[in-house]
């Protein structure tokens, strides 16, 4: 698949080089990836992907504007109103501590999205850096990094995550949750980036760069990384969905974000005990929030993958 892809890229590059002014052509080897306009057009032609993007933007907008639209203080108690069903005063009802569920859900989006996003930043940075080193240098660096991924991948991720979160859980649960998700998730990305680097580094433009005396850092950063970027972006989108799901699972088990800080996961954990009394709204709404953001990121990731590389298209 890789060789086919690069053939397509090479061809498109050759076509582009002829049309470009000389200065552009000179640095065009760093722009082997498909044309940006074309990718965007393909992405925006995909209705499901656009719907995913819209939902993602909406969720982040809500998180940013949370204090403005939460209507109520998420920690404020409403005496005598334990686990009340949705009403005009409390759109999504109240929880077992009489707090407004809507306000907690809105503020919870800040926590859940920022934990997920930061964790993905950590994991993509680690994964890309280690994958790049392994792929470019090979030898013992490669062996060391790849054997480490083997070890980490031999433990089911959720198990490792639960163990690390439980053992390190401290007062600062937010930071621990982020770091634990970030540091247990990088191996897959490292392998992916390594594979990309391996298939790219024997191509002519890299040999050319090396011949004119480019340093390894320059080759990795200026030439290899931009060409692997498309794959990295798709991977990051998919991981955003998964990281939010992981945070929710951890917090649901009581091992992630700790109450009173609201996160969708710990709201589910709290709502669970009220299920027997029929308080479905405490379980349904936080779950729907997790479901929609995960769905949206997955649709977006799929759309991006198809747009960047139509050859891999599923449909």
């Amino acid at each position: 698949m890789d060789s086919k892809r690069t053939m397509v890229q090479k061809t498109s590059d050759r076509v582009r080089q002829q049309a470009l002014p000389p200065i552009e052509a000179e640095r065009s080897h760093a722009l082997l990836r498909p044309r940006r306009g074309l990718v965007l057009r393909r992405f925006f032609d995909n209705r499901l992907a656009v719907a995913g993007l819209v939902v993602v933007v909406l969720f982040y907008a809500v998180a940013v504007a949370a204090p403005l639209i939460s209507r109520d203080n998420p920690d404020a108690l409403n005496p005598g109103q334990r686990s009340q069903p949705p009403s005009v005063a409390h759109w999504l009802g109240t929880d077992r501590n009489t707090r407004d569920e809507y306000a907690r859900l809105i503020l919870g989006s800040r926590i859940s999205l920022s934990v997920g996003t930061t964790a993905v930043l950590i994991l993509m940075t680690c994964g890309t850096a280690l994958g790049a080193l392994a792929g470019y240098f090979g030898g013992w660096v490669d062996t060391l990094i790849m054997r480490s991924t083997d070890i980490l991948l031999a433990i089911p991720q959720i198990l490792l995550l639960i163990a690390a979160a439980a053992l390190f859980s401290q007062d600062n649960s937010l930071a621990v949750t982020i770091i634990v998700i970030g540091l247990t998730s990088w191996p897959g990305t490292a392998r992916l980036v390594r594979g990309q680097f391996l298939s790219l580094k024997d191509q002519e433009f890299i040999t050319a760069a090396r011949t004119i005396g480019a340093t390894p850092a320059q080759i990795i950063w200026r030439h290899l990384f931009p060409n692997a970027l498309a794959v990295i972006i798709v991977q990051a989108t998919v991981w955003l969905a998964y990281a939010i799901l992981l945070e929710a699972s951890l917090s649901y088990l009581g091992l992630g974000v700790q109450i009173p800080t609201p996160s969708w996961g710990n709201m589910l954990q709290q709502g669970q005990s009220e299920l027997v009394n029929g308080a479905w709204w405490l379980t349904v709404f936080p779950g729907l929030a997790i479901f929609f953001i995960t769905l949206a990121f997955n649709l977006m990731g799929d759309g991006l993958r198809d747009a960047l590389d139509p050859r891999l298209r599923h449909s």
């Binding site: 969905a241 799901l245 929710a248 699972s249 649901y252 589910l268 669970q272 299920l275 027997v276 029929g278 479905w280 379980t283 349904v284 779950g287 997790i290 479901f291 929609f292 995960t294 769905l295 997955n298 649709l299 449909s315």
Partner: peptide, 26 residues
């Protein structure tokens, strides 16, 4: 099938478990 598979991949499994418990048991 395509839509169903997107739903299946996005649904948190512990949440699905809670919903089933709520509906089928309670």
């Amino acid at each position: 099938t395509t839509i169903g598979s997107f739903i299946g991949l996005a649904i948190p499994n512990f949440w699905l478990a809670l919903l089933l418990q709520l509906y089928l048991s309670v």
